[in-house]
Design a protein around this nucleic acid. Structure first.
Ligand SMILES: [Zn+2]
Ligand SMILES: [Zn+2]
Ligand SMILES: [Zn+2]
Ligand SMILES: [Zn+2]
Lengths: 178, 178
DNA sequence: CTCAACCCTAAAGTCAACAACAAGGTTGAG
DNA sequence: CTCAACCTTGTTGTTGACTTTAGGGTTGAG
């Protein structure tokens, strides 16, 4: 588990010199080791120090960077975006707030774009579901299928007539549209 | 992207028994010929009639089905979903409204799930952008980058002191956080 | 006849973000 | 010493919805 020094002793004494193997870093960040190697391959993580055995040994800075990546992912940035963000982050003083904020706002606009797309879908779909009775009768005149087939939703909400509801307990087609 | 309900597009080629070549169908539906062949390959479109030359000749029913697919896509169904929907559609009377509505409601829940995910991202990201000044100064103390690096947003909105704004016209770091 | 604009098939490539595999070397507990 | 649990590299597979490529045949206007 531990390298030259016992991990507990080290962590209590000083966190700064602690070097993690890939599995430990994975556990610490909640991602898989494959993901960490993938991030390295993609240039999101700088190649960490290696031991004589070839193992990767990660510094606390590496750990921080993984957290950076995960936080950026959590707010909607793609890995490609994050690569860009990291290039800003590593040399902050040679970039401006404007550059950073522009990226964030562009991403915000992207997110809002996708949200309104989904909102449009939701409205259309909920109109469809509202019009369908959802009963155990034949879908022959189902308003959902009809709307998809014919391109228009017949806004008349479905109301089986009492007679039909009484009689058509199963599989009877309901002809009034559903 | 596309209109959900566009009734006028349908009625044009329906009256005549005209058979469309793939390019014509593509133009009529707004998808590429490759996409049409792809849909056929995926079983979403039944293999159309062929001429002696091997060309596909599409019936108006085929056109209807493409529209069905596009409308279902527009409300958020995947192609796999649509395959299922089509199997309900082609034999409506052997299925129930319940089956259809269940699918639609499941898809609706999926859409709402994705929307709330995006809403979460938007909140987090807009908190970040609100706190950043977006000015032409060095990003050394940029609140966005700091929040990503340190995992917390310092809610203090950025206010350059008047002195600094006057003096730091370009590239000066602003130390009070941005 | 020529030539562009169509059409055909089957297979491979694209994108994102990993996951899975093969075929090994290393470590540490029992 | 054995054995599981790590670690290594490199390659391939996954998902969805196409797009592109390669290598042809067909049509119709000039
Ligand atoms: Zn129905
Ligand atoms: Zn009904
Ligand atoms: Zn800033
Ligand atoms: Zn600032």
């Amino acid at each position: 588990m531990s390298q030259l020094f016992s991990p507990e002793a080290i962590s209590t004494a000083r966190a700064s010199g602690k070097r993690l193997r890939i599995g430990e870093l994975a556990k610490a960040t909640g991602v898989t080791v494959e993901t960490l190697r993938y991030y390295e391959h993609q240039g999101l993580l700088t190649a960490p120090a290696r031991g004589d055995n070839g193992y990767r040994y990660y510094s606390p800075e590496n750990l921080e960077r993984v957290h950076f990546i995960l936080r950026a992912k959590a707010v909607g940035f793609t890995l490609k975006d994050i690569e860009e963000l990291l290039s800003l982050e590593v040399q902050r003083e040679s970039h401006t707030c404007q550059e950073v904020k522009d990226m964030a706002e562009a991403k915000l606009a992207e997110i809002e774009q996708r949200m309104s797309e989904l909102a449009r879908m939701r409205e259309a779909l909920s109109t469809l579901t509202d019009a369908c009775c959802g009963g155990p009768m034949s879908a022959e005149h189902c308003t959902i299928l009809s709307a998809l087939a014919e391109g228009e939703v017949h806004a008349e909400h479905h109301h089986h007539s009492p007679d039909m509801e009484a009689l058509a307990q199963k599989r009877d087609s309901h002809s009034s549209g559903c």
